[in-house]
Amino acid sequence: MAAPHDVPDATQLVAAVRQFLEADVLPAVEGRVRFHTRVAINVLGMVEREIELGPAQAAEHAERLAGLGVGGDAELAARIREGRADDPELLAALTAAVRAKIDVANPGYATP
C-alpha cells in the first residue's frame, strides 16, 4: 500500500487477527463461541483474498464486460433477461465472474 500507511498493511493486519483467532482463541472456546470464531476466521480469509485478488479481478471483469459491449453488470443482466444467455462469449464471461467470486469466497469450492 502506498504512503501514508506504513507496515503492517491491511492484508498483514487481517492475517494477524485471523492467525490469532485460529491459534489462540479457537482452541480455547467451544459451542456457539467456537462456531462464531470459525465464521470470523473464514470472513477474515475472504477479506485477505479480496484485498489480494480484487484489483486484478475488477480489471478482468471490466475487460470482459467491454468485450461483450456492455457498460456494467446491469447491462449484462439485461442481456441475459433478453434471452441471450446462450451466447458462448456471455457464458464464458459469466463463468469467469463466478470463478472469481469463488476464488475469494472459498477457493476450495473450485477444487474438483
Rank of each mutant, 00 (worst) to 15 (best):
E30C: 00
L90W: 08
R49N: 15
D9L: 03
P112S: 04
L21Q: 07
L26A: 12
R64D: 04
I51C: 03
L26Q: 08
A15G: 14
A58D: 14
V104Q: 11
D9P: 03
D73N: 13
H36I: 00
N106A: 05
G69C: 11
E50F: 03
V7F: 11
P112W: 00
M46S: 06
I80A: 01
A62E: 11
A66E: 15
G108H: 10
A62Y: 04
L68V: 02
D24Y: 03
V7S: 14
R49T: 08
A58S: 11
H5L: 04
Q19T: 15
E63D: 14
L21A: 09
D73R: 12
G54Y: 05
E60I: 01
L91C: 08
V104I: 15
L13M: 06
A2V: 00
Q19D: 15
V39D: 10
V70I: 05
G108N: 13
R18D: 14
V17I: 04
E63C: 07
Q57R: 12
A110G: 06
P88Q: 09
P8Q: 03
N106V: 01
A77Y: 07
E48N: 12
A92P: 01
G108I: 07
A92N: 04
V47N: 05
G31N: 12
T95A: 08
A77P: 04
L94R: 03
E60N: 06
T111C: 15
V43P: 10
K101S: 10
D73G: 12
N106G: 04
G69T: 11
P88S: 08
T95P: 04
G71M: 00
V29I: 11
E82C: 02
D103G: 08
L26H: 09
L91G: 09
I51S: 03
R38T: 07
A93E: 03
A10H: 01
N106Q: 03
L44E: 13
L90R: 07
A62Q: 09
Y109L: 07
Y109E: 07
T11C: 14
V17Y: 01
T111N: 15
Q12W: 00
L21P: 05
G45V: 09
R64C: 01
V7E: 08
P4F: 02
P88T: 07
P88R: 10
R32W: 05
V43Q: 12
A85G: 06
F35N: 07
G72A: 03
G69W: 06
V14F: 06
G72W: 04
A100C: 08
G67H: 13
V7L: 12
V104S: 09
R49L: 15
G54D: 08
G45Y: 13
E52S: 13
V104R: 09
F20N: 08
L21N: 10
V33W: 11
F35L: 00
G31K: 11
N42Q: 14
R99H: 04
G69Y: 06
V98I: 07
V70K: 05
V25H: 05
A85M: 08
L90D: 08
D73Y: 12
Y109A: 10
E75Q: 10
A58H: 09
A66F: 12
V43H: 12
